[in-house]
Design a protein around this nucleic acid. Structure first.
Length: 368
DNA sequence: AGGTATGATTATCT
DNA sequence: AGATAATCATACCT
């Protein structure tokens, strides 16, 4: 996840590819020593025709140059730069370069690796989709976090309820989002920097050894792949973080507490006194919610559950129904009595006083 | 511990 | 958009 790891990995990969090249160089060097230089020696005999001594000197010279080439990577940058310049101006350089080109052509190193194109990784797509859905990826500024919050609120069923937990959740999510984006940016920047660096390096090297544009392209591809695999790690861990956050906050709300006795009382009262049409209006729901100190969506849930469960097994709820019918009847009676008293009309019999007539249920469970 | 009650979620329908 | 029905997951009771 950390940037340093990423860079380390990339540096590793670069080191590996450099190793590769060193090996190539070595093999080329071997061949040219075994073949061409001897041939060259025959084609260009020593100028003054002296016996082998001058030829030996040249071989010595070439061996020396090759040695310099091979060890150039071990030296400090300035040192190497100076050496490189010296070698570049060496009179044998064009010859060596063409030899290298020829050998490379023969060994077919320049052709390999042209077939690999990026197949869209299904797992990467999965991660991308999830991050997008969670509002972590996607458009950054302005509506970004707000949209994520709105999505979370919408998912929870009722916007605005549990606002404390919600804002907490939202804060954590934006935190994750921010980390994700800064890391992503860092990776991108590092990738670009690294790519241009390597490209410059290769371009520069192409003056001393044959490197085709194809190869540079390939190298860029390798770097990009490496970096995107690191990005995938970032995405993976971001996904994990979001999942943990979700399970801790959103799913925590799934952990239910039973409503208070009072609340269920009020809800049941409403339900059984509106048995013929137990569908509270929005306003009624709001009022019930306020009275029970629960949310409107909880009221909706309660009525949804109640309706279906009542309908499913009316018999089981008979007792409860009677109980609440009695209660509302008593309430009504009290209210009526109060009203009567208030209106100072003296009627001898209070309706339903002292008892209640059990409600008559139809087969569909509705009060007649 | 196991069964039931219950609040929440989900898919589907209208 | 709201209702329903099935289902999940936990609370609560025995």
């Amino acid at each position: 996840m950390s940037f340093s790891i990423c860079v380390a990995q990339c540096t590793d990969s670069l080191a590996a590819t450099m190793d590769d090249q060193a090996r190539i160089m070595q093999s080329i060097g071997g061949v040219s020593l075994a073949g061409h230089s001897v041939q060259g020696g025959m084609a260009l005999p020593p100028p003054h025709g002296h016996d082998g001594s001058d030829g030996d000197g040249r071989k010595q010279d070439i061996g020396d140059i090759l040695h310099q080439i091979m060890t150039i990577t071990d030296q400090s940058l300035d040192e190497a730069q100076a050496k490189k310049h010296g070698l570049n101006c060496h009179r044998m350089k064009p010859a060596l370069f063409s030899v290298l080109c020829e050998i490379k052509e023969k060994t077919g190193l320049s052709i390999r690796g042209s077939q690999e194109e990026d197949p869209p990784d299904p797992q990467l797509m999965r991660l991308d989709n999830m991050l997008l859905a969670e509002g972590v990826a996607g458009p950054e500024k302005g509506g970004g976090s707000a949209a994520a919050a709105a999505a979370a609120a919408a998912a929870s069923g009722a916007a605005g309820d549990n606002s404390i937990e919600h804002s907490d959740y939202r804060a954590k999510l934006t935190q994750i989002r921010q980390i994700y984006h800064t890391e992503l940016e860092k990776y991108e920047q590092a990738c670009n920097e690294f790519t241009t660096h390597v490209m410059n390096l290769l371009r520069e090297q192409s003056r001393t050894r044959p490197i085709s544009p194809k190869e540079i392209e390939r190298m860029v591809g390798i770097i990009h792949r490496k970096f995107s695999s690191i990005q995938m790690q970032l995405k993976q861990s971001t996904c994990e973080a979001v999942m943990i956050l979700r399970s801790r906050f959103l799913d925590a709300r799934r952990k239910r507490r039973n409503f208070s006795k009072q609340a269920t009382e009020i809800l049941n009262e409403y339900f059984y006194s509106h048995l013929s049409n137990p569908y509270p209006s929005e306003e009624a729901k709001e009022e019930l919610a306020k009275k029970c100190s629960i949310t409107v969506s909880q009221v909706s849930n309660w009525f949804g559950n109640k309706r279906i469960r009542y309908k499913k097994n009316i018999g089981k709820f008979q007792e409860e129904a009677n109980l609440y019918a009695a209660k509302t009847a008593v309430n009504a009676a009290h209210a009526a009595a109060a009203a009567v008293q208030n209106s100072q009309a003296n009627s001898p019999t209070t309706p339903n006083s002292g008892g209640y007539s059990a409600p008559c249920y139809q087969s569909d469970g509705r009060i007649q």
